[in-house]
Nucleic acid binder design. Structure first.
Length: 759
DNA sequence: CTGGTCATTTTTTTT
DNA sequence: AAATGACCAG
C-alpha cells in the first residue's frame, strides 16, 4: 500500500476505515450526527484518486455549493501534487451539475442553449401569468399553492401532460391547466425553474441511451452526500449514472431527513439495499461532536419517531453539560437572555463568537434576535446567502444581464423595461402587448416594432426605441473573442458596469442623497467586482478528460455570462456562512444541517412554531419536525440552550404560547429545566420595553402627530437619533416613518414608541 | 405616467 | 409588522 493510502486511514475507527477503503460496488454509509461523515467522504475520494482512479472519473454530489467547495479543497490538500490524474474532480450540487449537463446536451435535452434559470420570484411572476391565461381566479389559486403543486409533480417526474391525464377532481384539473400554461410560459421564455433542472436532466438520462452511456463512461465513481434528502428525480439521475458500473456510494442519515416537503423521499435511503442487493452497509454510530447529555437527549427525542431503524448513538467525549430549557416572558426577553448567555460563554469560557449559533424554525424569528445582538454590540451574521441577490437593485441589474444573455426571457424584460422609470408605463406596455398577441410576436420584437403600434404617444415610442437600442448595443458588446476565464471576467465586469451606468440605475441612486440609495449604489458596485472575480468551475471540462491542463479552457464572454448567471441563481443560504468572520451565526434549522458549533441556542420551542402549525396535521410531517429538532440539538458540541417565550407577538398580535411537545419528550435526567426565566435575572437586565404588558404611559397625553412634524430630529431609546420622514394619521393612532442613523427607516406607532424631540 | 395613500392579506422550511 | 395591490391626484 502506498504511503498516502496509509495516511488516509490513520486515526479512523474501524467502520470509518472500511468506508474510506471501499472501492468498487455499491456502498451505503449510515452516518449519524457528528460521526465524521465529511472526513470519511473526503478521505474516500482522496483514497480513490490515490488508487489510480483519475479524478475526472469521480462525481460527488452534495447539498450546497459551500459543502462542495469545502470538500473539494480538503480533497485537494490530501492528494499530493505529483499524483497523476488529480485534476478534474467533479464536485457539485445536484442542481448545478444538472444545469451544466443541460447546457452541454441542450440539443438532446430539448432545451435552449442559453436558458434562464428562474428563481422563486421569477417563478411566481410566471405562475401569475399562467393563472391569468388559464382564466382561473387568482383568488383561489394563489401562486404559492400552485407553485407547490407543480413543484411536487415535477419532483415526481410528472410532466404537465402526465399530470393532466391523472387529474380527477376540479381542483386538480385546474392545477393541470395552470401547469400547462406555466410550461408554455417557461418554454417561450427559454427558461427552466429549479425543479426543471432535475426533471429534464433525469428524463434525458433515463430516455437517451447515447447520453447516458457517455456519462456512465465518464463518471465511473459516484458519491452522493445527504442521500436522505434526495427526491425521485435525483434518484433517477443517480441510478441512471450508476446503472452500468454500480459504483455508487451514498451517505446519509434517515433521522436527519428534513426536506420531505420539497419532495425528498426518505425511502431512497431506506430501500437502498433493495435496489442494490450486493450493497455494503456501514453504520457510523459514534458521535465525535457532542458531549454525553446532548447526545442522550437528542437520541431519546428521536426515539419518539416510529418506523425508524433504531441506531444507537454514543459519544466518548464525557457527559459534559446538560442542555438547558428556559421559558421566557416574551421573544424580547428570549433574545436578551441568549445574548447574555453567549456573552458569558465568550467572557468566562473564552469561546469565540464564531463558535456560537442561534437556530430558529422560521426566518421571521431572526428579526428580534438580530435586534438584541445589534443592541448589545455583539457581532453576528445572518446566514442568508440569497439576501444580497434578493435586493431590488441587484435583481434589477441581474434581470438586465439575463435579458442580454437570453433575449427571450420576458420575465426579466418585463421586470426592467421601465426600471428606472423611462416613460414606458403600464398603458404603453399593455398596448404593445396587445400588438404582440395580435401579430404573434415576441414581446421584445414588438418593442422593436414600436413605430407600428397604434395609439402611442411619440414620447413613449421614443422611450421604447431608446431602450431597444441600448439593449442591442450591450448584446453586440458581448460578441467579442474568447479568452482565458480571468481575462473574460474583466470584460464581464465591464458589461455589468455598462449596464448599471447606461440603464440609468447609477444616476438614479447617485442623485438621491438618502443613505438607502447610497447603499444600493454600493451593492451595485459590489456586483461589478463580483463579476470581475468570477471564476467558473470547469469540472465538466473535456480538457480534463483529454489530460490537458484544466485551467486552459477558453471562454467567450457570452458563455461566461451564462455561467455567472447560473452560479448566481443557484446560491443557497448556507453558502453565506463564513467561519472566518468572528461573529455569531443566526440561521434556520434547515440551513444548519451539516454544521456544528460549541454553543447552540434554539429559540421558539413552541407549538405552532416547532412543530410548525402547517406541519402538525399529519404524523408524517410531525416526525419530520421532530427530526428537525433533532438536527438542531445535535449541532451543539458542548452547550445547548433551548428557549421558548410564554407570549409571542405574531402578525402584530401578542399571543400566549403552548410549550412544544418536543420539550416534554426530553428526558428529565438529561436536561435541566430552568423553570421560569426569572432566575436568569429580572426586569432590568433585559430590555423588555416593547413587552405588551407595559403601560403606554399616561392615558391623557396621547402622543399627537403634531408634536413630530416631518423633518424634525427625534431620539429613540433603541435606535438613537433619527429624522422624521412622514407622519400619518391611522385609526390605531399616528404612525411615523423615521430614518435612524445607521439603522434605516423604521415605521413607528407614536403612541408606543418612546420618541423624544431632539434639537 | 408617476408617486402616493389606503386597504387587504399574509401562516415554513429552499435548490 | 410588512408586503402587495388597487386606486387616485397631479
Amino acid at each position: 500500500m502506498q504511503r498516502s493510502a496509509v495516511e488516509l486511514l490513520e486515526g479512523l475507527t474501524e467502520p470509518q476505515r472500511e468506508a474510506v477503503a471501499h472501492i468498487d460496488g455499491p456502498l451505503l454509509v449510515l452516518a449519524g450526527p457528528g460521526s465524521g461523515k465529511t472526513t470519511v467522504v473526503t478521505r474516500r475520494v482522496a483514497y480513490l484518486i490515490g488508487q489510480g482512479i483519475p479524478a475526472w472519473q469521480i462525481l460527488a454530489l452534495t447539498f450546497t455549493n459551500k459543502a462542495a467547495g469545502e470538500m473539494r479543497d480538503r480533497v485537494e490538500r490530501m492528494v499530493p501534487g505529483e499524483v497523476p490524474g488529480r485534476r478534474g474532480l467533479t464536485m457539485a450540487t445536484f442542481h448545478s451539475f444538472c444545469a451544466r449537463l443541460l447546457r452541454r446536451y441542450s440539443g438532446a435535452a430539448g432545451v435552449a442553449e442559453r436558458f434562464s434559470i428562474y428563481d422563486a420570484a421569477d417563478q411566481r411572476a410566471a405562475i401569475k401569468q399562467a393563472v391569468k391565461t388559464a382564466e382561473l381566479s387568482a383568488r383561489n389559486f394563489t401562486p404559492a399553492a400552485v407553485a407547490a403543486a407543480i413543484s411536487n409533480a415535477k419532483n415526481r417526474l410528472m410532466t404537465a401532460q402526465a399530470y393532466t391525464e391523472h387529474a380527477g377532481d376540479f381542483y386538480t384539473r385546474s392545477i393541470a391547466r395552470v401547469y400547462r400554461a406555466y410550461e408554455r410560459v417557461l418554454w417561450s421564455n427559454d427558461a427552466l425553474d429549479f425543479d426543471d433542472l432535475l426533471l429534464v436532466a433525469a428524463r434525458l438520462l433515463r430516455d437517451d441511451e447515447r447520453v447516458r452511456q457517455e456519462l456512465q463512461e465518464r463518471y465511473q465513481y459516484l458519491l452522493i452526500d445527504e442521500y436522505q434528502d434526495t427526491n425521485h428525480a435525483q434518484f433517477v439521475i443517480a441510478h441512471a449514472l450508476a446503472a452500468a458500473h454500480r459504483n455508487i456510494c451514498v451517505v446519509g442519515d434517515p433521522d436527519q431527513s428534513i426536506y420531505g416537503w420539497r419532495g425528498a423521499d426518505i425511502r431512497n435511503i431506506l430501500e437502498f439495499e433493495e435496489h442494490y442487493g450486493e450493497a455494503v452497509v456501514i453504520p457510523l454510530g459514534q458521535n465525535f461532536r457532542s458531549t454525553g447529555h446532548i447526545v442522550a437527549a437528542a437520541d431519546l427525542l428521536i426515539q419518539n419517531n416510529t418506523g425508524r431503524k433504531h441506531k444507537p448513538l454514543h459519544t466518548e467525549l464525557g457527559d459534559g453539560e446538560k442542555p438547558v430549557v428556559v421559558t421566557c416572558r416574551s421573544e424580547h426577553h428570549e433574545s436578551a437572555l441568549i445574548v447574555e448567555a453567549f456573552r458569558r460563554r465568550q467572557a468566562d469560557d473564552a469561546i469565540p463568537w464564531k463558535d456560537m449559533a442561534v437556530l430558529y424554525r422560521i426566518n421571521a424569528l431572526s428579526r428580534v434576535v438580530e435586534d438584541a445582538f445589534r443592541g448589545a454590540q455583539v457581532p453576528y451574521v445572518v446566514a442568508r446567502g440569497t439576501a444580497f441577490y434578493d435586493r431590488k437593485e441587484v435583481k434589477d441589474a441581474l434581470a438586465y444581464l439575463r435579458l442580454i444573455a437570453n433575449p427571450n426571457d420576458e420575465v426579466a424584460l418585463r421586470r426592467i423595461v421601465n426600471v428606472p422609470v423611462r416613460g414606458i408605463g403600464k398603458v404603453t406596455i399593455d398596448k404593445i402587448e396587445l400588438y404582440a398577441i395580435n401579430r404573434q410576436l415576441r414581446f421584445f420584437d414588438a418593442l422593436r416594432d414600436v413605430e407600428a403600434v397604434k395609439g402611442l404617444t411619440g414620447r413613449a415610442q421614443a422611450s421604447v426605441q431608446r431602450f431597444v437600442t441600448m439593449v442591442d448595443s450591450w448584446r453586440a458588446g458581448l460578441e467579442t473573442e474568447s479568452g482565458d476565464a480571468e481575462v473574460v471576467a474583466l470584460a464581464l465586469a465591464e458589461l455589468v458596469e455598462q449596464v448599471v451606468r447606461e440603464s440609468g440605475m447609477e444616476t438614479l441612486y447617485r442623485r438621491s442623497k438618502s443613505e438607502d440609495d447610497l447603499a444600493r449604489l454600493e451593492n451595485l458596485e459590489e456586483l461589478i467586482s463580483a463579476a470581475a472575480q468570477f471564476v467558473p468551475s470547469v469540472d465538466e471540462s473535456d480538457a480534463a478528460v483529454r489530460g490537458e491542463d484544466v485551467g486552459a479552457r477558453r471562454w467567450t464572454p457570452a458563455e461566461l455570462l451564462g455561467a455567472y448567471l447560473e452560479s448566481v441563481a443557484l446560491v443557497s443560504d448556507a453558502d453565506a456562512i463564513d467561519p472566518t468572520r468572528g461573529a455569531v451565526t443566526l440561521m434556520t434549522l434547515h440551513a444548519a444541517k451539516g454544521l456544528e458549533f460549541e454553543v447552540v441556542a434554539m429559540v421558539g420551542l413552541e407549538e405552532g412554531l416547532l412543530p410548525h402549525m402547517r406541519a402538525a396535521q399529519s404524523d408524517f410531517e410531525l416526525e419530520e419536525e421532530r427530526r428537525l429538532c433533532f438536527v438542531g440539538m445535535t449541532r451543539a458540541k458542548r452547550h445547548l440552550l433551548l428557549t421558548r417565550a410564554a407570549t409571542r407577538a405574531h402578525r402584530g398580535l401578542r399571543e400566549r404560547t403552548i410549550p412544544s411537545r418536543f420539550l416534554q419528550e426530553l428526558p428529565r435526567e438529561e436536561v435541566t429545566f430552568s423553570g421560569q426565566a426569572d432566575e436568569y435575572g429580572d426586569s432590568d437586565a433585559f430590555d423588555d420595553s416593547e413587552s405588551f404588558d407595559e403601560d403606554d404611559g399616561s392615558g391623557g397625553t396621547r402622543t399627537g402627530a403634531r408634536s413630530f412634524p416631518p423633518g424634525c430630529l427625534v431620539r429613540h431609546p433603541e435606535f438613537g437619533l433619527g429624522r422624521v420622514e412622514s407622519v400619518m394619521q391611522r385609526p390605531k393612532g399616528a404612525i411615523a416613518r423615521v430614518r435612524f442613523h445607521g439603522v434605516g427607516i423604521k415605521t413607528l406607532i407614536l403612541e408606543y414608541a418612546k420618541l423624544q424631540r431632539a434639537e
